[in-house]
Design a binder for these strands. Sequence first.
DNA 1: AAGCAATAG
DNA 2: GGTTCTATTGCTT
Length: 720
Amino acid sequence: MDNSGDEMEEDDTEWKSGFVDTAVLVPAAASGSFNSATTTHPHRVILHFDLDCFYAQVEMIRNPALRQVPLGIQQKYIIVTCNYVARERGVTKLMSVTDAQEKCPELVLVRGEDLTHYREMSYKVTELLLSYCPLVERLGFDENFMDVTEMVESRLGHAAESDSFSFTGHVYSHIAADVKAGDHQRLASGSHIAAELREAIHSKLGLTGCAGIANNKLLAKLVSGSHKPNQQTALLPENIRDIMDSLSGLRQVPGVGHQTAKRLQALGLVTVKDLQLCSLNDLVREFGGPTAQRLKNLALGVDDSPVTPTGAPQSLSDEDSFRKMSSTKEVLEKIQQLLTSLVERMHKDGRQPQTFRLTIRKYSAANKWFNRESRQCPILNHIGQKITSGCAAEAVDQLIPVAMKLFQKMVDTGTAFHLTLINVCFSNLQSRTAAVSGKGSITSFFTYSTSPRKTPSTSPQSQDRSSHGGCRNFTDHRFGLPSTDAQHKKQLATKSSSGPEAPLHGSKCEQKVVVGGEKTLKASGSSTTCDLGDTNNPVLHQLPPNVDREVFKLLPEEIQKELLSPAYVHSLSSNFTNKSVSDVAHGYKNRSPQTITHFKSFKDVIKAPDKLDSADCGITVDHQSPAGTSVAPGENDAVEGTLSSSRSSDFECPGNVDPEVFSELPPDVQRELTSEWKQQKLGLKAPSSKKPVRNSMSRDRKAAGRGSQANSLFKYFKPS
DNA sequence: AAGCAATAG
DNA sequence: GGTTCTATTGCTT
């Protein structure tokens, strides 16, 4: 049944033509616009790199002793990957820890939930590849596509034909030495480039991996795993049919996922050949024209998708999963923990996130999997600036109430809930100046071009690569490739997305986020100083009715401006924005300039409750004195009518909870927390200087949620 | 712009 | 296929 050579399918002219010339199946409109070499020659030269058991390799570099033992990388209760020693003992990817230990009792486990080291190494690989050629596309942490067509042309043009008539590495379904490379000079050249890049990755970074060389991404990826580990394989055009036929099912075709495979199966298609032979009309009926054509092309080994330079990530997220989380307090602490690391990562990136998203997974017996839901909202500029300017603790503090508000949109904290995952995400990442000085003004990109992404090295702290200077030079005379040729620039320009100066990965290059540089803001040094003296603001009449004028006048000018911006005023009808405006106003009104600069973060407070200085904290609630010198209702709330509900002063927080943060939480949440604290207090002694995070302490006070008099703000917290 | 589905490693 | 911890794209509203 394996008719891989050239059997005669009686009536199938359509699919034969697909192999002969990819352009036949490519819509004319598309073929004119995609990248580089397609217009000058029929085939691009595409490389696919795939690092061997990537996480395990990183851990073995960190601890070379692990090289000789069976090593598994554990996330929660599964082995996500393992080294080859472990594979010889029967350990496989995605095996449960118990199964793995049964197979291999000597298995050494390393925890891999924290992806920091993997992410950093991953970007070093991408940057190394980028130092040779700009067309590099990441796929996950351990794979990269590369369009080396230009490099190949350059090499073949410059003659030095020594390399050009032989392949290096494997050639799919051939003995490499037997292949007449002269018929495939461009792929042969690509095989040498792949070998050199693999060697560079090994010598500079200490990592091994596989590579595939073919005429498109689909084929390069499919062929790269033909010989593992640490080997490479090229695919000749005449063997496309072979490799497609070798796939055991449609699921193996990159781009065909579970859902698509199921729909195809419903049409009676289970093998690649089934799809190749299926009438296009049937597919169009099920999937629509473009998807139908793409699926059929994939089955034929045809893929015209360009290698799209990945650039800096478009979102940063952090998440944790667990068996069960069912109290608001746990949720709050988990969110705080996730935010703390996410904000730090965001700061190193240097860009300013415009959107925050909270995702949860609710337990459900029926559908234990894939039930994630999320809510997102804009990030106020003053919070975003805290991140970029390095005020991480304050940024976290101010994001926690935002996150809890989103949380409550998804979960009725009044009734039982059962979460198994929480994710926090920053997206819509903008390069500094753009955000503040009004929507993407292009000019702002270039005025502050501080972190050139030309040099492959990113973070100063990981700067052991003192030899990095050699990279460029090596590249240049080796490949004689000006990375500035027209084709590349064209494609790069289309994806300028995140701004030219955004580093590929965490620069942490203190780009002096000139807060005052923006403008009129007088406070030069301290970014958060309030300007209490400014009383003649001509635009107060623009304020929405629920914003207290007196409070507004107390805000720093930058915040005022933000609140008055057209986009902002326009969106004031939404729940979120109303609430946020109020919160902002409220938060600031209760602080003198001095207390702001010395503000103790929630994180700091919770970690060192005994070091609290009450003078440093918000003044509305005294969380320190055992006597409970909480401020009387209304005493500090000049804006009682509009703003007081979320800050009922008739309560007390445990000593390790920042009242500022607490006060900004939704009333429901305050109520639940208060009742938990109350119970804990009754149940056990208050720890004063212990493992602070887990427990809470101090006195309670029942009436935390007693803002039952629903004012205009209360409704925003009601589930709906 | 928000939320989700699908795909990927 | 799902375990994990991400990340991207495209559809729908």
